[in-house]
Simulated assay, not measured.
Amino acid sequence: MAIIVSFDFPGAGQELYDSVIERVTQGQGFTRFADLPNTGLLSHAAGPVDGGFRVTEIWESAEALEHHARTFGPILADLGHGDIQPTIFPAHNVVLR
């Protein structure tokens, strides 16, 4: 079952997001996040919100997200945001264009 995941980073901005993406892409030999082989990732969007930054994703399953978290979790912890708990809920409908 597809899931929707939202990560809020209070007090953070695009700099944090760009730092995370840079570390992930460099470690795998890619220059863009969109080129990473994130198996199970259907959609990814990120941008500023009042008081911070938000990343919202749609994943094919909770297992796919958990696999992905093994890469991003340690990077976020290293950058001082290891305590971020995402909001996760089942997707009733997903439209991709």
Rank of each mutant, 00 (worst) to 15 (best):
M1N: 02
A2T: 08
A2F: 11
A2Y: 04
A2M: 13
A2H: 11
I3R: 09
D8M: 04
F9W: 13
P10H: 09
P10G: 02
A12Q: 10
G13D: 15
S19Y: 04
I21T: 11
I21R: 07
I21G: 05
V24N: 03
Q26F: 05
G27H: 06
G27C: 02
Q28P: 00
F30M: 05
A34V: 09
A34Q: 04
L36E: 03
L36P: 06
P37G: 05
T39A: 13
T39W: 12
L41K: 03
L42N: 03
S43C: 12
H44G: 09
P48Y: 03
D50T: 15
G52T: 03
F53Y: 15
T56D: 05
T56I: 14
E57G: 01
E57D: 14
E63Q: 12
L65Y: 15
E66Q: 15
A69L: 13
T71Y: 00
F72Y: 12
L76Y: 13
D78Q: 11
L79F: 08
G80C: 05
I84H: 01
I84Y: 01
I84G: 00
I84E: 08
T87A: 14
F89M: 10
F89H: 14
P90I: 11
P90A: 07
P90M: 09
A91T: 02
H92K: 09
N93D: 10
N93T: 14
V94I: 07
R97C: 10
